[in-house]
Design a protein around this nucleic acid. Structure first.
Lengths: 257, 257
DNA sequence: CTAATAGTGTCTCTCAGACAGTATCCT
DNA sequence: AGGATACTGTCTGAGAGACACTATTAG
């Protein structure tokens, strides 16, 4: 490793140019549910949304951007993102993952800023009582589609695209769908969540595969009540549907087996 | 986003504490082949190795560490890692991927250093003519197993563990095995590479699955010579084995289908 | 001939994929 | 009654998993 400056055990101030800041930016995804007006009880319309703040100050004043903020010397990047998430939305204990670094020279007019990006998956219910933080003029949810058409601050359009790709991939290969769902959910809800994130997804025998094939039935399990009877829900349908919950088990995928 | 300092469009020097550097560190993996001494031609013994440098200067003087170096304002992190990889090993155009950030306070005695880590997968043949760079006392390959038992500089033990986990996962879900193989290879070679990275891997009907199942046969294809005849190799066996090459196709994995 | 690797045959049970059909029950 | 969702039956062909077996050829 080539150090900026070395003098034996007397390491003095760095005489090289150092970054002007290490921000963390967070792509907060949520899935909103809206009732369709059908004649009977029906499945809600779901949309993948991303939370943006409107900047109050230079640079990119007035434009929409990802929430985020600068890392302090006393915290890790993850802690920083967690803190910023809490400050911007009031939510804690949600699934948040680091996914990339953005270091293109000139990406931030304020100087040499290397941005660390996270995505968070938040249940809609947790984002109800959000408010604009001090440094933001406004906070709002946008559908991902709409957000990508806006003129966002910094390189945040690219960041959102990358985050979307990442969660789309993880949606099919891990059980992150759970982050958008209540603890107990129906197969239709799960199916809808997957389709919302991954619009092309279609699996005709979905119910059967996930509940009865040898290799997958460890993913979810039926919920039973105190008497050991199967627990059902008729929230979205006349005929009550079986409730399921996720297990800890995550199947190992392989292209070679 | 909460800025360190804002004053309208006159943004002045940052009065907050800023990082003392943004290094990139690279976990360079390679698979070495060693002939076994058997009575007949036989498959080589393969080992997963990682390239380390011995530090010449404070801090961690004399200890082994990952190659790496500080990012410049004019380059991206990826460019930085590519540059350092070339400086340390003389190799270019290899598979290199960003995989994590390490920002634990106090991880570097020189100050507040946020390290960005990459892994590179390099064919053994490319690492032959390496030499110690200016700031390193020595450069050497170690088996991953051995490297993890050494007292490495910084948090590099953790970094290597994380990188290993990442490539183990990618070995089974993507076609990165190609990075360790020549363009044309036999099924046994491919199988060995997978096993070297993923010691638990076992697949009895490997040949059959990868060559003749509908869903997978796009991954590799048989190599033919100019006359259209199948191209074989008897490098590791008496009976010549079919040569294959990777296609661009990568199967889409899913836990739901 | 023999060691070492390469590759095939065969059998059973499960799964994928498609689609039609039945079940439930609120409005 | 009928609309909306929930779930089951059934059929075909492909694949998973196991293991024994044949093929090839340098040394």
């Amino acid at each position: 490793m080539s150090e900026p400056l070395e003098n034996g055990s007397n390491y003095t101030a760095n005489k090289y140019r150092t970054p002007d800041g290490a921000p963390a930016d967070i792509v907060i995804f949520t899935i909103t549910s809206k009732e369709r007006n059908a004649a009977k009880k029906s499945l809600p319309q779901r949309e993948l949304q991303v939370l943006l703040i409107q900047r109050k100050l230079w640079p990119f004043e007035g434009q929409w951007a990802l929430p985020g903020g600068f890392c302090k010397e006393s915290e890790t990047m993850y802690d920083c993102a967690k803190r910023e998430l809490a400050e911007e939305t009031g939510v804690a204990d949600v699934h948040m993952e680091y996914f990339n670094v953005y270091s293109e020279p000139g990406r931030d007019p304020r100087g040499w800023m290397i941005s660390h990006t996270f995505f968070a998956l938040v249940n809609e219910s947790l984002l109800l009582n959000r408010r604009a933080a001090d440094d933001a003029a406004d906070v709002r949810l946008f559908t991902v589609e709409k957000a990508l058409k806006m003129d966002l601050a910094f390189d945040h359009e690219l960041v959102i695209k990358d985050a979307l790709n990442r969660i789309q991939h993880k949606m099919l290969t891990t059980t992150i769908a759970r982050e958008f769902l209540p603890q107990e959910f129906t197969i239709s809800e799960l199916y809808q969540v997957i389709q919302t994130v991954m619009p092309g997804f279609e699996e005709r025998n979905f119910v059967r595969k996930i509940t009865s094939t040898q290799s997958r039935k460890g993913i979810i399990e039926e919920v039973r009540d105190l008497h050991g009877d199967l627990k059902m829900s008729n929230r979205y349908s006349q005929r009550a549907a079986q409730l399921y919950r996720f297990n800890d088990y995550v199947p190992q995928l392989s292209i070679y087996s």
